[in-house]
Amino acid sequence: MAGKAYLMMYCCIIFLLSVVQTCYSTEIKLGILLPEADTYPFSIKWVLPALEIAIEKVLPSIVPGINVLQEVKNSNCSMDLAPKAAVDLYAVEHVHVFIGPFCDYAVAPVARFSPHWNIPVLSAGALAADFKYEKSEFKLLTRVHGTNSNTVEAFVAMANSFNWTNIAVIHFEKNFRESACRILVQNLLYHLRVKSQRRPWVGKVKDTNPYHSDIEEILHSASLQSRMCGVSYVSTKI
């Protein structure tokens, strides 16, 4: 799944660069706005090599004679620091396109500012349903895949098709408020409770370390309460 997302992002980068080239003669500045921590699936460490391959190997055959510069800023996956870095990239570095941010709370303010600056935003994140339905608010945002709502709708459709009525939802509580799991789990619970009139059992795992967590007890409880179990966990190691 991650491989497909990387490929789509690679293709989108080439497309954006070729479009931007029609407006800027010989130089394009990319504003790379991603987290430094490599625990995120689309951190600077993972994305920069793909960008460099696209710029070196593919771009010259599509739009020859273009010099591409990269200005890199750490978004910290923060709703406070990411927009400040974006203002810096816009006002000081004069970038032509933003690559990132990835995290929902970081990309939202940047994608709101970008239409006023006339700078497109390409993100491998922006997974919240708002980015899908509030297109007038995020006019220049391009996502490389669907939102969490697509995942949730697919799961609920599957549950309806197989008549799953007793469902358990398990998520890891560590850093839950700041994680992508939070938006996915809340969206899933909303669809199950409000739209499907189901009453899912919810389990919270406090520690991601399998040797110290209460996962065994939670799974046992889930087996008594349900016949279908959904686990939400985001990791670059799976």
Rank of each mutant, 00 (worst) to 15 (best):
residue 230 G to V: 14
residue 55 I to Y: 08
residue 77 C to P: 00
residue 228 M to R: 13
residue 161 S to K: 14
residue 124 A to N: 10
residue 170 I to N: 00
residue 96 H to I: 01
residue 214 D to S: 12
residue 7 L to I: 10
residue 105 Y to R: 10
residue 184 L to Q: 12
residue 26 T to A: 06
residue 148 N to Y: 15
residue 141 L to G: 04
residue 58 V to L: 07
residue 30 L to D: 09
residue 33 L to H: 07
residue 235 S to T: 15
residue 129 A to Q: 13
residue 20 V to T: 14
residue 56 E to F: 08
residue 20 V to M: 04
residue 238 I to A: 08
residue 63 V to Y: 01
residue 85 A to G: 05
residue 190 Y to D: 13
residue 178 E to C: 03
residue 122 L to I: 11
residue 76 N to K: 11
residue 34 L to Y: 12
residue 128 A to Q: 12
residue 97 V to P: 00
residue 74 N to Y: 01
residue 183 I to W: 03
residue 139 K to A: 13
residue 176 F to D: 03
residue 9 M to N: 10
residue 229 C to I: 15
residue 238 I to V: 10
residue 188 L to C: 13
residue 33 L to D: 03
residue 170 I to F: 04
residue 228 M to N: 04
residue 142 T to Q: 03
residue 108 A to G: 08
residue 24 Y to H: 15
residue 128 A to K: 11
residue 174 K to N: 11
residue 46 W to A: 12
residue 65 G to R: 02
residue 22 T to D: 11
residue 5 A to S: 12
residue 1 M to A: 15
residue 93 E to N: 13
residue 4 K to E: 13
residue 111 A to V: 05
residue 34 L to K: 07
residue 233 Y to K: 09
residue 151 T to P: 01
residue 145 H to T: 02
residue 59 L to I: 07
residue 196 S to E: 15
residue 45 K to L: 03
residue 162 F to W: 11
residue 142 T to G: 00
residue 193 R to V: 12
residue 221 S to D: 15
residue 161 S to V: 06
residue 75 S to V: 01
residue 220 H to Q: 13
residue 162 F to V: 12
residue 60 P to D: 11
residue 5 A to F: 00
residue 140 L to K: 06
residue 202 V to L: 01
residue 110 V to K: 05
residue 1 M to I: 12
residue 38 D to C: 03
residue 17 L to D: 10
residue 143 R to E: 00
residue 180 A to V: 10
residue 200 P to M: 00
residue 71 E to Q: 08
residue 234 V to H: 09
residue 228 M to V: 14
residue 220 H to C: 09
residue 200 P to V: 02
residue 191 H to R: 12
residue 233 Y to A: 10
residue 121 V to W: 08
residue 220 H to K: 13
residue 75 S to N: 02
residue 14 I to M: 07
residue 169 V to G: 03
residue 44 I to H: 09
residue 129 A to P: 01
residue 196 S to D: 15
residue 125 G to S: 08
residue 12 C to Q: 14
residue 176 F to A: 05
residue 39 T to V: 08
residue 106 A to N: 09
residue 42 F to S: 08
residue 105 Y to F: 09
residue 220 H to N: 14
residue 165 T to G: 08
residue 225 Q to M: 13
residue 224 L to E: 15
residue 155 F to K: 03
residue 14 I to K: 04
residue 139 K to C: 01
residue 104 D to I: 07
residue 131 F to V: 06
residue 203 G to K: 02
residue 28 I to S: 07
residue 30 L to F: 06
residue 54 A to G: 11
residue 153 E to F: 07
residue 130 D to Y: 02
residue 120 P to T: 14
residue 219 L to E: 07
residue 190 Y to N: 12
residue 57 K to F: 07
residue 140 L to E: 00
residue 5 A to H: 09
residue 57 K to T: 07
residue 123 S to F: 08
residue 86 A to M: 05
residue 213 S to Q: 02
residue 12 C to H: 14
residue 146 G to N: 05
residue 82 A to H: 00
